[in-house]
Write a protein that binds this DNA or RNA. Structure first.
Length: 458
RNA sequence: UCCCCGGUAGCUCAGCGGUAGAGCAAUCGGCUGUUAACCGAUGGGUCGUAGGUUCGAAUCCUACCCGGGGAGCCA
């Protein structure tokens, strides 16, 4: 249905009615097949159908939600509101709707639409989200392809315990009512499908490190699972994550990669989804287009954690959680920094060692690690990444300091002992990126089928 | 998981101790090259669930369920 350059010729359109306006002599149907925000206006002159008595009754049934098949001539529209329209020669009602069709030709609340997971994708907003998601996914793959990153298919089921990435969903085939038990009464996981406890992956990072130390540059793009009981507009139990990992890359290069990545994806979306983004700008978040253009054109701000803390302390603002060096930045701190202080995306680097994961590269000051977060206005943290600790002795010491048993991570240490090199990567929450570029307030409305605590429809 | 707010017609909401309302949708009719069209009429609700207070509860109290906002955790 994407608009053609010129009128003329016989065309066929199959889709669903957004709205129907019936007059005495003429009916107007707005047909959409979901390929674009704007539908196509179909003009049905009643006299043309007068030879078909059945059509008179069928026309009555044409209303919002119906599926139709239209054949007619594409002509320039005489009226304002659309460039082209179809003068119908034949309109066939393929799928009628009942009186109780729940989507109306008016604005619905997103809360209500969430109760209609099987129909909400037909709404303007969710349809636009679907198209922007698709365009963003393509832009992401294009970005990495241009930079010679291999797409790595990391496993969804894992037996790794990825420290610090939240609690995991267990994967098991054991009978929950009567699992096999060892002599001491504990569940005997050796009899489970994989012979040991298994989980849905919370991150592909560790596998990506393995691959990066073989193929230099890789990225994963796939679903990720967190069993955290998080009830916010920014968290899902199942979400998509992009995780590049590159050998011979330090933190500065990692931050540059993240910045180039976000700016290129935004730039491409501005080029490829102008209609949908204009809709979000008008209906969802005023000023969105200007903000995105600003992101595409302006370099991100960068500062160290230490610097960020100093600026927060000098801000004169009273925060609910006081700022002191050594504690992680709170949401309110991140928001002040990106939304009010620098007013654009911001990369904070070199966080205190104790607030970050054990695998991050320890700086010479022994107090901070080579970590970075990309903070964007409105959404907050969109990227978290680091240069990884590639020095085996330091890595093992940090595991012990963190209270971890190095034994299960033997392979991880071995990767460093055999041809280890400096390497770095980051994780980007795909849905948060979509929130950022669409202005959608709730993450549940930027994924077709959201999974959250207590909710997993379809 | 914690704090706050809310569940009244299909949808969005008003009513906040005295027996249920509006707009939109639906149904019927009218009008119109219309644009979330417009005009008129009609139908439609055991007021989230269960208890309690009261002569009387949508309205006050308690518990639970569901939804939203914020926080924590993080992407």
């Amino acid at each position: 249905m994407r608009a053609r350059e010129a009128a003329g010729g016989r065309v066929r359109v199959q889709g669903w009615l957004k709205t129907a306006r019936h007059g005495k002599e003429v009916s107007f149907l707005d047909v959409s097949d979901g390929s674009s925000l704007a539908g196509l206006q179909v003009v049905v002159a009643r006299e043309r159908e007068s030879a078909n008595p059945e059509f008179q009754t069928e026309l009555q049934a044409l209303r919002t939600g119906c599926a139709v098949d239209v054949v007619g001539e594409l002509v320039e529209s005489p009226a304002a509101g659309q460039r082209f329209e179809i003068h119908a020669e034949r309109v066939t009602l393929i799928g009628p709707v009942g009186d109780d069709y729940p989507l109306q030709k008016k604005r619905h609340s997103f809360e209500y639409l969430r109760t209609l997971g099987h129909l909400r994708l037909r709404s303007n907003t969710l349809g636009a989200v679907l198209r922007v998601r698709d365009a963003a996914a393509r832009a992401i793959r294009r970005f990495f392809e241009e930079r010679d990153f291999l797409e790595l298919h990391a496993p969804v089921v894992t037996t790794l315990d990825a420290e610090g990435a939240g609690s995991q969903f267990r994967v098991t085939t054991l009978d929950p009512a009567a699992p096999p038990r060892a002599a001491d009464g504990a569940v005997d996981w050796s009899q489970d499908f994989f012979g040991k406890p298994a989980y849905l992956s919370v991150s592909g990072q560790l596998e990506a490190e393995i691959a990066a130390l073989a193929a230099s540059r890789v990225y994963t793009f796939g679903p990720t699972f967190r069993a955290e009981n998080s009830n916010t507009s920014r968290h899902l139990a199942e979400f998509w994550m992009v995780e590049p990992e590159a050998a011979f890359l330090d933190l500065e290069g990692d931050a540059t990669l993240a910045e180039d990545f976000i700016r290129q994806v935004v730039r491409e979306l501005l080029e490829r989804c102008p209609e949908d983004l204009a809709f979000f700008d008008e209906r969802i978040e005023k000023g969105l287009l200007a903000a995105l253009a600003h992101v595409a054109e302006t370099p991100f701000e960068r500062m160290t954690y230490t610097d960020a803390v100093a600026r927060l302390e000098q801000s004169g603002r009273s925060f609910e959680f006081p700022v002191t060096w050594g504690v992680d930045l709170q949401s309110e701190h991140e928001r002040w920094l990106s939304e009010e202080h620098v007013r654009r995306p911001l990369i904070v680097t070199d966080y205190p060692r104790d607030v970050k994961a054990f695998y991050m590269y320890l700086n010479d000051d022994e107090r901070t690690v080579r970590a970075m977060d990309v903070l964007v206005p409105r959404v907050g943290e969109i990227v978290g990444g680091s240069q990884r600790e590639h020095r085996a002795d330091r890595l093992e010491r940090r595991m012990r300091d963190a209270g971890l048993d190095p034994a299960p991570y033997g392979w991880y240490l071995e990767l460093r002992r055999h041809g280890g090199v400096p390497h770095a990567g980051f994780g980007l929450g795909f849905e948060r990126l979509i929130q950022f570029v669409t202005g959608m307030a709730n993450i549940r409305d930027v994924i077709p089928f959201p999974r959250t605590p207590g909710s997993a429809e379809f």
